[in-house]
Amino acid sequence: MAKVRGAIVVNTQICKGCEVCVPVCQEKVIGISSDVNRKGYHYAYMKNPEACNGCTNCGTVCPDRAIAVYRVKVAT
């Protein structure tokens, strides 16, 4: 069991589907949805939610700050 669990919330309306967050996520959490937002952008989402450790790499590089990151300690 991971000592820490993380999760991201993507603001799907302001995400522009630029995918810059994808390569910086070491845990390969983020995928690009086949759905589109109202502007026609395929937005990012947590493809592998369990793998997320809340490291904030994705949030840091997102040009539109569309990603909020959460992290919580988990009792081992």
Binding site: P63, D64, R65, V69, R71
Partner: peptide, 30 residues
């Protein structure tokens, strides 16, 4: 996990809510 108290990163409150006019993935936004 995504409870407010667990938030460790989000958009700065010093940025307005206006969507950025920059092209997708542009360094200007960052």
């Amino acid at each position: 996990i995504i409870k407010p108290e667990n938030q460790v990163f989000c958009k700065s409150q010093l940025m307005t809510d206006t969507p950025l006019s920059y092209c997708p993935g542009c360094g200007h936004g960052t």
